[in-house]
């Protein structure tokens, strides 16, 4: 196997004064170009995990007790020369977009990080165009950042991290304030980036989108990894905090002995299975 984009082992974090570990012996690997969906109820440790992977903990936090190993493309995180070098490889989009919007105008927000890196102007312009297209923010470029809606802020923040062209993107609920169309847009952008080799870890509660867009899922609870595997493996297991409705329906009918087909993860898959079960195709599908 080629070098993992991210390798984590024995990662344990305890915040000062907390009664339990925020992360408890967390270990997993992510391959380059993979989309890993991270799910779990509130308090599972999802955001703490992303902050560790981005180097924010322990370097900039009030250094909670942390131990364990994190490697980025085979290189241990402590070997990096500070956060600025880590951010060349790893980009973090935090849960609250307002925390990382620092400029008054959207275009400046996107350009700022690239200028700080000394990226040549033509390349800045190229990435700006690409970001505007990928995240559908072309119409927002000259708007004031404070006047954006929550969903618009989220797309701008994801785009600004994209502009720095990290090999790994860590996204903490990047679509929480987006409507369904906006959510799908961001998920599609994630898919495109992954096809280009970017590794994406995305924390999401929107299980129906994750089921379709993630290559693998990692289910967490109370600081521990409860399950890791393909969306089907994880969502059919007991560790899933929630399931896509179509999967829920199929599993309930299967309990009753009425669904003798592979449980679906999406509506089209459910329709195909239904047609086979009822011998009454509703689409122009060829019977097997």
């Amino acid at each position: 196997m080629s070098t993992a984009a991210l390798a984590v082992s024995g990662l344990t974090v305890r915040y000062e004064g907390a009664d339990r570990r925020a992360l408890d012996e967390v270990g997993f690997e992510v391959a380059p170009g993979e989309v890993l969906g991270i799910l779990g109820p509130t308090g599972a440790g999802k955001s703490t995990l992303l902050q560790c992977l981005s180097g924010v903990i322990p370097r900039h936090d009030d250094s909670p007790g942390m131990r364990g190993d994190i490697s980025v493309f085979g290189r241990p995180l402590p070997d990096f020369a500070g956060l600025s070098e880590i951010t060349e490889s790893v980009g973090l989009v935090m849960q609250d977009p307002e925390v990382q919007l620092v400029n008054t105008v959207v275009r400046e927000e996107l350009v700022w990080g690239m200028e700080n890196r000394g990226i040549p102007v033509p390349e800045i312009e190229r990435r700006l165009r690409r970001a505007a297209e990928l995240f559908d923010i072309g119409a927002l470029l000259d708007r004031f950042t404070h006047a954006l809606s929550g969903g618009e802020k989220q797309r701008v923040v994801v785009a600004s991290v994209f502009c720095l062209s990290p090999r790994i993107m860590l996204l903490d609920e990047p679509t929480s304030e987006l409507d369904p169309a906006g959510t799908e847009g961001v998920m599609e952008a994630i898919r495109v980036l992954a096809q280009e080799g970017v590794t994406v870890l995305v924390v999401e509660h929107k299980i129906e989108e994750l089921a379709v867009y993630a290559d693998r899922l990692l289910a967490m609870r109370q600081g521990r990894v409860e399950a890791v595997g393909t969306p089907r493996e994880v969502l059919m297991g007991s560790a899933a905090p929630d399931r896509p409705q179509v999967l829920d329906i199929a599993l309930r009918l299967r309990e009753e002995g009425l669904w003798d087909a592979e449980p679906p993860l999406s509506v089209p898959a459910a329709v195909t299975a239904w047609d086979a079960l009822t011998n009454a195709p509703h689409s122009d599908r060829n019977p097997a």
Binding site: D248, R252, L253, R254, G257, W259, D260
Partner: peptide, 26 residues
Amino acid sequence: VDHAVDAMRDVLQHTATPVSHDDKVH
């Protein structure tokens, strides 16, 4: 989901071949 399960159960129960299934999901 509840509505859907009820409506789909009705149809499946009236579909020709009864289905036997052993490895139920728990």
